[in-house]
Amino acid sequence: MRLDQRGDSAHSVVMTGHQDDFSHLDRAGRAMANVARNPRLTVNIVVGAGIAFAWLLLGAMAIRGADVRGSAPGDTLLHGLPQLPLPDFLERFFALCLSPAPLDASIGFRAVALTVMWFLMAIAAMLPSAAPMIRTYCEIADTARIKGEPVVHPLVLVAGYLGVWLAASVLFSALTLSVHTFAASREIYDPVLGIAGALALLVAGLYQFSGLKKACLKKCRNPFSILFSNWSAKASSVFRLGVVQGIWCFGCCWALMLVMFAVGVMNIFWMALIGVFTLIEKQMTGSLPTRLAGAILLVWAAALLVVSLSVGEIR
């Protein structure tokens, strides 16, 4: 559904009753005013800036994490990148996220830091794949505006969507903390983390073949029916729509996020790969990419489990 220029003009008349006049503003002011009255442009700018900011922080964290990890994929490249000076609170935040062993901070602080880290990963890897949802909502909203109907800003929808991933980040944080705490208590990081990673890959691989995965992916690929049938001019209802779409997305992608336990939660290269895969998976039709990924994950899980058990026996 696309609107022509005449439709956009009608939109402004219906919404305001007259053409907005920003001639009294300077150039920067006129630009900001035009952005503010264009919800589609606003949400694209905010979402794009949020994704870029998340990748920026995760990139800085990954550079520092390359010194903590052993030899994860891409660490050689990261070693050659400069570590830019950052505020003390960010350095402390990075340390809480990257250290597998408990630091001198309380478990509460570390849980919060890990939650923020997982949420940043969700923004970086999962929010781009929400583009079909955002685009569809904006197209329906454009039509509603032309008819003179009130429309809730699409950022409310995005907030509901991200609310689900924030809740998921709490769960992933608790799981990360549990695995690291157990490994620290036994002083056997390598085999425990390796086995945990293998189990995560096994679950992720099997889930790719499940009916629930297929159902959730179908909803993610076709958000129009949900958005159109539940359309509302109330902010609370639109927020709930975002939550519903977020739940479908979580149902589609939660298992892929478990892959980070196998490759290291701050492996930025695998994070990017997962983000690209989810974006492609939601744009394509058919089940070939999903099933192929599932097969690869299962083979990988078996190999990692064998290696981890061998390390445990040697120790």
Rank of each mutant, 00 (worst) to 15 (best):
M1E: 08
F269K: 02
A131W: 04
T136A: 06
I247Y: 05
F89S: 03
F172I: 08
L162N: 01
A167P: 02
A295Y: 05
L305W: 01
S71T: 15
R2G: 06
C249Q: 13
I107C: 00
A95F: 00
A111I: 11
A168E: 03
A183S: 11
L41D: 01
L212W: 15
T143Q: 14
L212M: 11
R315P: 00
D88Y: 03
T285W: 13
L279T: 09
K213P: 10
E313Y: 09
V152N: 07
G194S: 02
F182I: 08
A10K: 07
I296D: 01
I107S: 00
M284P: 02
G160E: 02
W300K: 10
L57K: 03
V116D: 02
D88M: 04
V164G: 01
T136N: 06
L258W: 05
G211H: 13
G242H: 11
F22H: 15
M284Y: 07
R69G: 13
G163C: 06
G148K: 08
A105G: 11
P73I: 13
L212P: 02
R64D: 09
P289K: 04
W231A: 12
A125V: 06
A255T: 13
V203L: 15
A28M: 14
I107T: 01
L77E: 01
F228I: 14
G29F: 05
V35Y: 06
G264F: 11
L258T: 08
H180R: 14
Y161K: 02
D88S: 09
Q83E: 15
T76E: 14
L305D: 02
G74H: 08
Y137K: 07
I274G: 00
A293I: 13
L3P: 00
V68M: 15
L78R: 05
R27E: 12
A233T: 12
E139M: 11
S236H: 15
G50M: 14
S23D: 15
A31I: 15
A62G: 07
V158D: 02
R291C: 14
A200M: 08
S236P: 09
E139K: 10
